[in-house]
Nucleic acid binder design. Structure first.
Length: 414
RNA sequence: GUGGGCGUAGCUCAAUAGGUUAGAGCACCUGGUUGUGGCCCAGGAGGCUGGGGGUUCAAGUCCCCUCGCUCACCCCA
């Protein structure tokens, strides 16, 4: 029986990994422009960290976590909890009251895999901790938008506010009343949700349910004064930056910790998994995890698999050539001369390919061409005797003689 | 956890109503060119047809089971 990767776990092999590297490069660059610092976090945490932050009743905590039950530790299903744990543990807010942090890495959820959804998946995660300013919300959203734009991806932005502990209970009661009045017209899932997570009824996909809830009370219309001010502040700031968005009063979040601003970048090109990035504000979560009370925060996560799927649907970005030089040496003498030459050129910073299988010149040239090398250096008995190799342009046709020493070759390659 | 679709070469796919030795394209290797890549031509290698059981003179093809992949629901990035 052949051993294969686990269900929902994938290898990223050469040919595909370049796109991931490109994605990470662009992301790091954009994050840097907004003054975010990278933080690297462990993949395992105490189970309690996620139970407390994400919420005991959520699907993630209830049935999707990879947990070592005997050790009370869990492979992270998302990054925010771990990041805040580290923020608190190292007192990062003390030196710098407003911290901008990002992290990149794998997350784990035991779900049934489908397009754009794996059990080990990867996220780009950015958080701003310590500021309640609505401009921070807008700036964070603008950063995500800029990153997606630089990746040439066309997505749309949806925005909503979930209120806060001051105004949500009253709204929730209002919504429950609305749902209870038309419960028998809703699907089975919605009946269940009305008890467990009534907000979820709002984004049910069943057409019949949608019809019945079109005039449901919207959280955004029942915000308390502070939340309403904040929400309009976010919208004004987004307008100021020229970020276009659509208010979606039915957009809710799956994790308990969100409050006020929530947003999603969605696409129509990924089947059912429409969200490529999502996030929101989580004022109070830092306090909940044992950090300073009243510490506000906001962040987003982007699904890298989903971004890669989108990137694969469009023309490939220009990626650097695989090699600067491929050496084709024929005969023992030539090989013994070429081998240390390759080492010297590599030490000098060039990417050099060289075959050690004793293959024919033709085979080596063919390999050189396929490898994407810009040029080939041909060395045979004649060249060894003369002290000159043939430097051939693989993009065009010409070739020239170059002295067989690393200095001369380095010059010729530049 | 629930449903649908699909499993044949590394990849994408063929294989007439069950019928000899399971084919093609791409990729790979060799040669055509004793030392020159791309284009072309010729040849080669590569498969327990996912696995197991059953029906049959005969199964890639029909039946059952199982495993895997995939899409969707749920949920979510």
């Amino acid at each position: 029986m052949k051993i294969k990767a686990l269900k929902g776990f994938k290898d990223v092999i050469p040919g595909e990994v370049e796109l991931w590297q490109y994605l990470e490069k662009v992301a790091r660059d954009v994050f840097g422009r907004y003054q975010f610092s990278e933080i690297r976090l462990p993949v395992l945490e105490e189970t309690a960290l996620f139970a407390r932050s994400i919420g005991e009743g959520t699907d993630i905590v209830e049935k999707e976590m990879y947990t070592f039950v005997d050790k009370q530790i869990t492979m992270r299903p998302e990054a925010t909890a771990s990041l805040l744990r580290a923020y608190i543990e190292h007192g990062l807010g003390v030196q710098k009251p407003v911290q901008r942090l990002f992290t990149i890495g794998p997350m784990f959820r035991h779900e049934r895999p489908q397009k754009g959804r794996l059990r080990q998946f990867h996220q780009l995660d950015a958080e701003i901790i310590g500021s309640a300013s609505p401009r921070v919300d807008a700036e964070l959203i603008a950063m995500a938008a800029l990153l997606l734009a630089e990746l040439q991806l066309s997505v749309s932005l949806e925005l909503n506010s979930l209120g806060c502990p001051a105004c949500r209970p009253a709204y929730r009661a209002l919504l429950l009343e609305f749902i209870a009045a038309r419960l028998d017209g809703l699907c089975d899932d919605c009946r269940r949700r009305s008890a467990t997570n009534p907000l979820r009824v709002l984004d049910c996909k069943v057409p019949g349910c949608r019809e019945r809830i079109v005039d449901a009370p919207a959280m955004a219309m029942h915000l308390c004064g502070d939340c309403a001010d904040h929400f309009s502040g976010v919208q004004q700031a987004l307008d100021l930056l020229g970020i276009t968005y659509r208010l979606n009063k039915f957009m809710v979040r799956g994790l308990d910790y969100y409050c006020r601003t929530t947003f999603e970048f969605i696409t129509t090109d990924l089947g059912a998994q429409a969200a490529v990035a999502a996030g929101g504000r989580y004022d109070g979560l830092v306090g909940l995890l044992g950090g300073p009370e009243q510490c506000p925060g906001i962040g987003f996560a982007m699904g890298m698999e989903r971004l890669v799927l989108l990137l694969q649907q469009q023309p490939a970005p220009a990626l650097p050539a695989a090699a600067d030089l491929a050496i084709a040496a024929v005969g023992e003498e030539a090989v013994l001369l070429a081998f240390p030459l390759a080492q010297e050129l590599r030490a000098a910073g060039f990417r050099v390919a060289m075959d050690h299988e004793g293959r024919s010149l033709k085979a080596q040239m063919k390999q050189a061409d396929k490898s994407g090398a810009a040029r080939a250096l041909i060395i045979g008995a004649t060249e060894v005797a003369a002290g000159y190799g043939l430097l051939r342009d693989l993009r065009g046709e010409g070739q020239q003689e170059v002295a067989l020493n690393s200095a001369a070759l380095a010059d010729a390659l530049l």
